[in-house]
Design a protein around this nucleic acid. Structure first.
Lengths: 200, 200, 200, 200
DNA sequence: CATGAATGAGGATTCATTCAT
DNA sequence: CATGAATGAATCCTCATTCAT
């Protein structure tokens, strides 16, 4: 087996274990067992436990960013782009629930664990939303009085919380379509400059 | 000192310590020191570490619920009520950043720590949003095609993420007014049945 | 049991265990078992493993220094003082073989473990030899051409190596008297200004 | 490269690494890196880590023994022989500080690591001192009341401690000449039968 | 009720050694 | 012979929890 494969195997195992147990309750031996390697092997590929978490985060988010950008490049209309982002995010989270957990739960712990870490990938990801909004404002599809940096948080937070529920099984489970549709309705109709309503 | 006072002191200390260090990195002795009691004393008021966390959560959220309900009772218009909820939440989170952290971070850990715990208070809290929406739908201010249970997540998630940023100091700090105004715009204009736009 | 007692018990246990196994092969649990305390208890009194070693060293050497100084104060003649030092050192090492091992073996490891550590107690101890020599030179009992700082090393090294053998059981075991007598002969007759031999 | 060369390279590397870090803190990979071979290669030439240490010791001491004996064979007078031994030892230790460390530090650990090991080379080495003394006693240059086996320890211990300081850089650095001269004075004048003083 | 010294289970990490290539 | 990736046993240290005072 190549080094790349083992690295990937550990990442996958860690994603699963962190999601199931949370970072602190996850033992290195859990990850090792899940990845079918020895405990020590993990330290050939990662510096320490937190390094695994950050790697999981960076790599998985990185893959989503790449894929999302490709989808967005095929579309010009910012209104459609926003829809695509929302659908893509929810789809990705529904598909990889382990990842969803890691992003949601561990994202909030990271700050406490490594002060210097800046979540560059995460910022890159949510800035996609800001870019879409800015483009929409330039093309006068979106209201000028919306602040892109606040709106990106609002939208990401909404998506994040909705997909969180998918993992807790405490409530009615909505399909990706349902959820996307609802969230798009809430946001797009709001963010969109309503031409008709402004006319007399 | 009365038992009630000591209980309150420990809750306050725990809120502060959990917020600063996170649940797992917080030591019982940290909380004891902050509360100016002995380590062992804490176990006279709480069963174990997780019990402190849950108590913090329940009591602090409980206080917010009480206060929020009082504010909402003074208002009839569901559109105004939604605004009140949003402003109240952001104000509370800005005022007590420790609490904000605890709600945001620990909320997501809880599931992993105690399987049987159902976050009753948290559910009670976000169900306030659902109630407002349902009322608004009955009174035909809000669209009928919005699902209250999905919308409550969307709105809470948005508020939560926006207030999370206040504690990370990584970005421009918006005032409560700015943030409330923006979020209300995004949601209310979207959720509101736009009478004008539906007219010919 | 008072804290002082437990501290002392751990020091005694550590001395024994370090002597038997050496610092690196000694496990904290060995020391804990020997001291009849829990592993964790050790960390209430010492910061870490190396701290135990340094404490053992400082405290045991400290006691010897105190006792040696008391003995020396009762004597004026530097020739006698040197004898007293030699006898005292060998007696102490024969009595507490564990300590002898720790001084001899660990003294040499310490430098590698803690760069900043300066063995202040050890230096204080061997400087007693230098002081005796200087006094003897002032009173013209000892040769002026002897360098006290080199001689102190020579004498300590000799004593140290001789007492080392007592713990290895590889060779004929000399009594303290025999060894003292021999070493004194070698050194004192050499260091002493031989009045007769300089006379014609 | 021949096997002999690789063996020698590893010995040289191990000497350096053990001296710098001490036996326990030295990693096999450190030695491998220093010797520019793979970790596994070391196990083609040595059984295990302690075997390397013992080999280093035996081989380096062996070389010194050979050289020392050659020097001594060229001299008949035991008084001169003792001087030669002292100068030779200090010169060797000053030249190869790595070796000095290994002899001094590891000599004392060995007993704890391998019970059955008897340090044959080391004993051979210090027995040279005993032989010189015995010869000196036969030829009536040295006092009869000196016990050669105790004196050999005394002299070796003194030399060892003096050369130890050269590696710690904590004190004034004496030259080999200075140190030899001082130690010879201390011992030889003491061990020598003082003809004049015994005459009436 | 309050204390805080003592406990000891638990886990991240290291590194000597092996063995498939 | 040589390699170095992989192994997994071993251990220091932390900290939630207890209980004698």
């Amino acid at each position: 087996m190549k080094a790349v494969d083992k690295h990937a195997k550990i990442i996958a195992a860690a994603t699963k274990v962190f999601a199931k147990k949370g970072f602190f309750n996850a033992r290195i031996s859990d990850i090792a067992k899940e990845a079918k390697v020895a405990d020590g092997t993990i330290y050939l590929y990662f510096n320490n436990k937190i390094d695994i978490l950050l790697s999981v985060f960076e790599e998985e988010i990185g893959a989503i960013i790449t894929h999302t950008r490709k989808l967005l490049d095929e579309e010009q209309d910012p209104r459609k782009k926003l829809e695509i982002f929302i659908v893509k995010h929810l789809t990705a989270m529904k598909k990889n629930k382990y990842l969803a957990e890691v992003i949601q739960i561990e994202l909030r712990q990271t700050t406490k664990l490594v002060k210097e870490y800046r979540n560059s990938k995460f910022n890159e990801y949510i800035n996609i939303i800001a870019e879409i909004i800015e483009q929409g404002q330039k093309q006068e599809f979106f209201r000028q009085d919306i602040m892109p940096n606040l709106a990106k948080r609002t939208i990401f937070g909404a998506l994040d919380e909705v997909s969180r529920v998918w993992n807790t099984s405490l409530e009615t489970h909505y399909s990706v379509d349902e959820a996307s549709c609802q969230i798009i309705k809430l946001f797009v109709s709001g963010i969109l400059i309503d031409v008709e309503s402004s006319s007399p």
